[in-house]
Design a protein around this nucleic acid. Structure first.
Lengths: 231, 231
DNA sequence: GCAAAAGTGTTCTTAGTACACCCATGA
DNA sequence: TCATGGGTGTACTAAGAACACTTTTGC
């Protein structure tokens, strides 16, 4: 014991946003809390930080434990530390968020761990300050979708432009002009068109694209600002 | 004791940026560390979070203790939690930043508390991961100066447009066209021109302005993006 | 041949950029 | 009267916004 000071419980909470190209809906993963206080209520997934564990690893562990998922986008957002935030004791909580490309396999994995997906406008009441956390996450989603390619984290590796457009419409909750959207996103050169079409949504079929990480990094280092929020 | 889990030391580190309209230089406040490990080395100001204290109050306390300053801009940036970040023990640290309008009075207050201002390009070596923290702060400064009026936090209540321009040049470390800067910043309506001139820098004198908080809030809620980085 | 989604181009308007001169004043 | 910093305007260019029709194909 090298420092002489009182210690504090430190926890992780994790916002897990998921998007399914099929039903075109943004979803949030919630869990029915098993421990008191508030056993039986809905909450974000979370857990305590261990002494011998980097906080980013705690976040990965929490995500893995509750969803079975790993190697997905996971980033720190903010730390919540009001003394009265948890009536069960003084717990400071570090909020992370994860963005998931939903498919049936991942839905099954998550379901088998007991968590449940909720549509963003149909959330139940949440415990503690978790509602504030959700609000922060939603506003970050809107803010970041403009300037960084978090959108691609929510889509499968191969996706069509209409799917990407539909995702942005879901994030911003309004309709976007498809001609301008297309022009803008293609002019940035961060998409690679494949010689494949996806025909699940139309008879004509839509070209599949991949995200071009390299070009995106170049653009970003040049200080480019995507600004995809097109009326 | 309601939760059964190990606790952790939680600390605050605080980046304090200061700007003095007279010498037109961005400065960072550092402190010579008094406690081991690393006694005698330079570090950010910081301290432990108490169990009965909101983390934002911890940050205010740390700032007050080391600088005598209160009621200034103070915001959370990021939490650092690698297990090996402090060889003195497992300490997770929440980084805050504060932006200070420097004048002689504030410089005296700070000096009398034993901290010292360093120009950004003349920083000494820093302990632990404090260099990473500084880098994060500097990049946040550049990022936020574009889209939010943090610049005004660094200027006195009344300031001239050349002073504001000089500050942005200091933040972005390059020269900015004064005609375009003026046009842009005035077109946003977030400045109020006063019927006073500041003649410290010229015989003609430059009009003093105040920041218009109300108009800024309106602009922000309309989703406006300032984009002051003018070539 | 028709329904349904994918894909394409043009005009207009707005905002950014580059650039040079006059103004007010104290010394 | 002149040196110094403060203030203004215009022409050009690039990007955003609004908007309608053709293409492909399975049924």
């Amino acid at each position: 014991m090298t420092y002489n000071h009182e210690k504090i419980w430190l926890s992780i909470d994790c916002l897990v946003f998921g998007y399914d190209v099929k039903d075109e809906n943004l979803k949030l993963l919630l869990f029915e809390r098993k421990v008191n206080p508030f056993a039986g209520s809905w909450s974000l997934i979370g857990g305590f930080v261990n002494v011998n564990e980097d906080i980013c690893h705690s976040a990965e562990r929490v995500l893995k434990t509750f969803t079975g998922l790993e190697d997905v986008f996971l980033e720190q957002l903010h730390t919540f530390g009001k003394t009265e935030r948890d009536p069960g004791g003084r717990v400071v909580s570090i909020l992370y968020w994860s963005l998931i490309k939903l498919d049936d396999i991942k839905k099954d994995i998550v379901n088998s761990h007991g968590a449940r997906w909720f549509e963003l406008d149909k959330l139940p009441n949440l415990i503690l300050d978790h509602e504030r956390m959700v609000n922060l996450g939603v506003s970050q989603l809107k803010k970041n979708a403009i300037s960084s390619p978090i959108g691609f984290e929510l889509l499968p590796e191969k996706f069509t432009i209409p799917q990407l457009l539909r995702l942005y419409e879901a994030i911003y909750n309004r309709s976007i002009d498809d001609r301008n959207f297309r022009k803008k996103i293609l002019s940035t050169d961060i998409l690679i068109r494949l010689n494949e079409k996806d025909k699940t949504n139309s008879k004509k079929g839509a070209y599949l694209y991949k995200f071009n990480e390299e070009n995106y990094q170049r653009l970003k280092s040049e200080g480019y600002h995507l600004d995809i929020a097109i009326g």
